[in-house]
Each structure stands twice: as C-alpha cells, then as structure tokens.
C-alpha cells in the first residue's frame, strides 16, 4: 500500500463570484489526477508554470479542498477525517514552500518559527523546546547564533534552510517540496537539493518534489510524473522518463533542458 494515494482528484476554480452565487466559466487547475507515492521514494512532479503542480501538491496534504476525489494518507481518508484526526495526521505531512521570503512570518524570531509546529502539537519545556530547535538547525547546516534573529536578516538560501528545519520539526513521514529551489540562484539551489537528499537518508523521508526544472527533478527523483494542463500525461521511473519518454510533451521538456556539451 502506498503512503499517499490520490484518486480522481479534481480542483475547479469558478471564474466569477457574486452575492447570489457562482457565475459562468471555470478553470480546472487539476483534472482527474490519480497518483501513488510510496514510502521512501522521491516522486518528482514536473511541468511548466500553470500546469497545476503546486495545486496538486497542496491537495495532497489537504491544504486545499478538492472539488472531487479522495486523498489517502497512510491508510486514512483525509476527506472524511475529523478535525482532530486531521490535525494529528498533519504532523506527518509537511510542506516546504517556493518563496523563502514569504513563507516565514516576518514578525517571528527564527527560534519561534522552527518551534511553532512543536508549540502546536507538543507541550515542551522551554529548555526541551530549545534543544529540539538547535538539533534541527544543525541538521540543516545552520548555527544556533541565529535563534533570536528575524527572517529579513538572512539570505534566501538560509531562509529556505530555516523553512526546511521547520518542516522537519515534527519528524514527518511525507514532505511536499513545492519548487524549493526555484527562487534561489543555481549554486545555493544545488546546496539545498543536496541537503534535501541528505535529510531523506537521515530522517527516512518521502518526498513529492515539485519543480519546473527537469535537471533538478532528475537529480533527486526515483520516479517522475509529468504534468500538463492539470493532467498527468506520463509517469515512470527516472530512467524511463529521461531515456525513453513516450509523450510528446515530456520529449519537449527534455529537449528544452540545456546540456553541457563536453
């Protein structure tokens, strides 16, 4: 049984809304997608902007309500889970955002940002809380000296590391990484990708790695799903997709990847 099972997920956004109800016209961000994500793997989700991959990522951890379809996490149907059950399940599924500048509350200190999941789900003493936060900081390659500081004092790469530390706080099983390196420059992005690979080994994580960049997805993923206009057009192992792509869209994505000719 897969860790995460998406069945016939659809997300439709109406185009107009008024006091009296919905208008005509809609946009299908995600159209009847079914997907399995197995424990321990990294499923890469690749597609251009507007293909619906971020929406799918958020649907997978119930940050968004689907218009129809079900999401199963670890055997639990997230749609029919009670509020308390959903809250408990959230410990095991976390998300890393694309924008390192928007995903951290500018009014929170770093210590409080990373400890927030702990504050919500556990009741730790101050000392225990601090110890856990320091442990997480070290895991992502940051120093304890940053604890009392604010997000705006750090670079994009450092802020992304803080976001990753936060996502790890509750030792989740599943992490949706929504374009975690798209807003960073290449060198910093590569460091973050390597960090994610290391953490996967250390913490036994399962990733849904969303990106528009094929080279990055290729590097990290065991399987790749290609998304176009709200639908999965092709899915297979990384070797299958990169060496013998079946769908024309997949082929065009691969062709668009710049290759360094030796």
């Amino acid at each position: 049984m897969a860790l995460v099972e998406l069945r016939n997920l659809t997300k439709v956004y109406p185009l107009t809304e008024s006091l009296f109800g919905r208008g005509r016209g809609e946009t299908r961000a995600v159209n009847n997608v079914s997907l399995d994500i197995f424990a321990g793997e990294t499923l890469g989700l690749v597609g251009e902007s507007g293909s619906g991959k971020s929406t799918l990522g958020r649907l997978a951890i119930r940050l968004l309500e689907p218009t129809s379809g079900t999401v199963w996490f670890d055997g639990h149907d997230l749609g029919s889970a009670s509020a308390g059950e959903l809250r408990r399940l959230r410990r095991h599924m976390q998300i890393i955002f694309q924008d390192p500048f928007g995903s951290l509350d500018p009014r929170f200190r770093v210590e409080d940002i990373i400890a927030e999941p702990l504050d919500i789900h556990e009741h730790l003493s101050r000392a225990a809380r601090r110890r856990k936060v320091v442990e997480l900081l070290h895991a992502v390659g940051l120093d304890d000296s940053i604890l009392p500081r604010y997000p705006h004092e750090f670079s994009g790469g450092q802020r992304q590391r803080i976001g990753i530390a936060r996502a790890l706080a509750l030792r989740p099983k599943f992490i949706v990484a929504d374009e975690p390196v798209s807003a960073l420059d290449v060198v910093v992005g590569a460091q973050i990708v390597n960090l994610l690979a290391k953490l996967q080994r250390e913490f036994g994580l399962t990733y849904l790695f969303i990106s528009h960049s094929m080279p990055v997805v290729r590097y990290l993923s065991t399987r790749i799903a290609v998304m176009y206009r709200g639908e999965i057009v092709e899915i297979g192992t990384t070797e299958q997709i990169t060496e013998s792509p079946a769908h024309p869209y997949t082929r065009s994505l691969l062709e668009a990847t710049p290759e360094i000719v030796a």
Partner: peptide, 26 residues
C-alpha cells in the same frame, strides 16, 4: 493568502492561532 499563513495552517494551527499570532501582528 501569504505563504507564512498557509504554512501555519499546514502545521495544523487553529484558526484562532493563525489570526491572533500571524495575521493580527502583521
């Protein structure tokens, strides 16, 4: 709509917590 609010909800923060600790100070 800001991502740090989404992040808080994703962690399982209650509506109260989100409004009082994240939205209001900002």
């Amino acid at each position: 709509e800001k991502e740090f609010v989404e992040a808080a909800r994703g962690m399982g923060a209650s509506g109260w917590r989100v409004v009082l600790r994240h939205i209001t100070p900002n």
